[in-house]
Simulated assay, not measured.
Amino acid sequence: MEQIPAKIFELYLDHLVGTISADDRLYVQQQLETNPVFKAQWEYLEREGETIDAGDYLHRIDSAAALQQLKAAGTTPAAATVIPWKKWLAAAAVVLFLGLGGYYFLHTHARVKAPPVATLQRKQPVRLLTGNGEAIALSKDSSVQTIALNNATLNTSNGALQYTSADTVLNTLEVPAGENYQLTLSDGTKVWLNAATKLRFPFHFGRAAREVYIEGEAYFQVAANAQQPFTVHTSLTSVQVLGTAFNINTYQTGTVKTALVSGSVITRDKKNGQQMLTPGIQADYTNNQGFATAHFDEEEVLAWRRGVYYYHRMPLTNLLKEASRFYGIRFTLNDVTAANQVVTGLMDRSRLDDFLSDLATTAHISHQVAGNEIILK
């Protein structure tokens, strides 16, 4: 049979996974009764679906496979970056018997064109709050910016800060929602800070120890120094290292996630509990359950450093909370019927329009912009 139109293919996928709306169900029924071409194409899909038992296939395949395809791509695919996981799997099943027809849908099916969001208000700047009370806005553009303070000289370029100073008073680097930033500490340790993150640190470490305090998410490449341990403090735990690379995440209230990339670390709580990590292992700490460890996907955990966020079988309401922090924009969902839709995919910080277009295509959600808020309906 000739190539199935994308609209019919999508309706069939919704029908197959049980996500078809009442309006679309009525539309399909009307077309089956009045449109011979539509009926022939629909019945072809049904016959082929029965041949491979596509419905059973959905129960046997893991949606993680779909997410792995996105990770392997490294960048946002040309097709939907936000897709209900069941529909993705249905498409994978149907591709088995449609060949290029399924490929056509997954890779060239046009997004619903979402209105541009250029009218959104400007994001807050990255700020450095010094120990003596000064507040400095830090540029993220490519130009070199040199700022002379009473106790330090700052140099910024391309979203990164370096400095020279002998001052040991704690400062605070604040990265707002929708941004990220990089910092090189006085010992040569490099720190990448994710959106909505605060780091307290001294311009210069004392002799006894190197200590910093994190709220949010950060990736550390710690300069080795056996005589001066490096400690990262959170509200619930601390992580002690000599020289290593790891990610630490405190976004979820009451939880700290520490993922070790190289070297070794010991993470401790405030109740004398502790957990040693080896590379590839993540420790999740909660007040109620203490430490729990598991292997982690490095690409998934660290993708935020290049402005990408992966999500796996996430309810739409949870996704929009993550999107609010990730893009630095408030998302409000007015369509309560869509709240529990489960989606798998990625967000690209530089492609908000694509994210909204994909929501319109896959979740049938439109939006309007009001100030620095996006209302989904």
Score class of each variant (00 low, 15 high):
347 M>P: 08
263 G>I: 01
4 I>H: 00
109 H>N: 07
374 I>Y: 00
339 A>H: 02
265 V>W: 06
198 K>L: 10
195 A>L: 06
261 V>F: 06
189 T>A: 04
204 H>E: 13
245 A>T: 06
34 T>Q: 04
244 T>F: 00
41 Q>N: 08
354 D>L: 14
2 E>A: 08
222 V>M: 11
276 M>K: 11
352 L>T: 07
129 L>A: 07
35 N>Y: 01
373 E>G: 04
330 R>I: 04
46 E>L: 14
302 L>Y: 13
158 N>V: 10
250 T>A: 01
284 D>N: 14
281 I>E: 13
153 T>L: 09
246 F>H: 00
67 L>I: 05
163 Y>S: 05
260 L>S: 04
5 P>H: 06
133 G>E: 11
122 R>N: 13
299 E>S: 14
334 N>T: 06
64 A>Y: 11
343 V>L: 14
334 N>G: 09
218 A>W: 10
315 P>H: 07
67 L>A: 05
109 H>D: 05
307 G>W: 06
329 I>R: 01
185 L>K: 03
118 A>V: 00
17 V>K: 12
231 T>F: 01
83 I>C: 14
246 F>Q: 01
298 E>H: 13
201 F>A: 05
158 N>Y: 11
302 L>N: 15
208 A>C: 08
142 S>Y: 11
227 Q>L: 14
312 H>D: 11
256 V>A: 01
355 F>N: 01
375 I>F: 07
224 A>K: 15
134 E>P: 00
308 V>S: 05
29 Q>F: 01
154 L>M: 07
141 D>M: 10
283 A>Q: 00
292 A>H: 15
62 D>Y: 01
120 L>H: 12
292 A>F: 12
257 K>P: 04
119 T>S: 15
56 D>V: 07
220 F>L: 08
171 N>L: 08
99 G>E: 03
159 G>E: 07
18 G>I: 04
126 V>D: 12
130 T>V: 07
49 G>F: 06
198 K>I: 02
253 T>I: 05
374 I>R: 03
339 A>I: 00
